[in-house]
Amino acid sequence: MAATGSVALALYYYYVRGETQRGQFVGLWPATILGLAVSLNLEQMKRMLQDFQN
């Protein structure tokens, strides 16, 4: 949801307010948010697999 919100905010800044640099900056956040979420999920899966093997 955070990634979707930041995409919407980036589009708002870029097209509605005409602040292209701010829109591009905010538009970089979704990739960071999704990358962090993937990393956390992978760590959780790794721990689950280690627990299952023991």
Rank of each mutant, 00 (worst) to 15 (best):
Y13Q: 11
L9W: 02
D51V: 13
L34M: 04
G5D: 01
Y14F: 07
F52N: 14
Q21W: 05
L36T: 10
L28G: 09
L11P: 01
A37R: 12
V7A: 09
S39L: 14
M48A: 15
L11T: 08
D51C: 03
S39A: 14
Y13N: 08
G27F: 12
Q50N: 14
A10N: 04
G5M: 10
L36V: 15
P30E: 01
V38F: 13
R47S: 10
Y14G: 07
L11M: 13
S6G: 02
Y15W: 08
A8S: 11
Q44I: 02
M1H: 05
R22L: 14
Y13S: 03
A37M: 06
R22S: 01
V38Y: 13
Y15D: 01
S6A: 04
M48H: 09
M45H: 06
G27W: 04
Y15I: 06
G5T: 10
M45G: 04
L11N: 00
M1S: 11
L49Y: 10
L49S: 08
L36G: 09
E43W: 12
N54L: 12
R17D: 03
F52L: 11
N41S: 09
A31T: 15
A37E: 02
Q44N: 06
L28K: 04
A2L: 13
D51L: 12
G35S: 09
L42Y: 11
A31R: 05
Q53M: 07
Y15N: 05
L42F: 14
F25N: 12
V26P: 08
M45S: 05
S6D: 02
L34D: 00
Q50G: 09
Q50Y: 15
N54R: 11
F25D: 08
R17C: 01
M1V: 08
I33W: 05
N54H: 06
M1F: 08
V16C: 03
T20E: 03
A2E: 04
Q53R: 15
S39C: 07
R47I: 07
S39M: 10
L36N: 04
S39T: 15
Y12P: 00
A8H: 04
Y12K: 02
E19F: 03
Q50K: 15
L49M: 08
L34G: 02
L36D: 02
L34S: 02
E43K: 06
K46A: 15
L42C: 10
A37G: 04
Q24F: 06
Y15G: 03
G35F: 10
V7S: 05
Q53L: 12
G18W: 07
R17E: 14
E19Q: 03
E19Y: 04
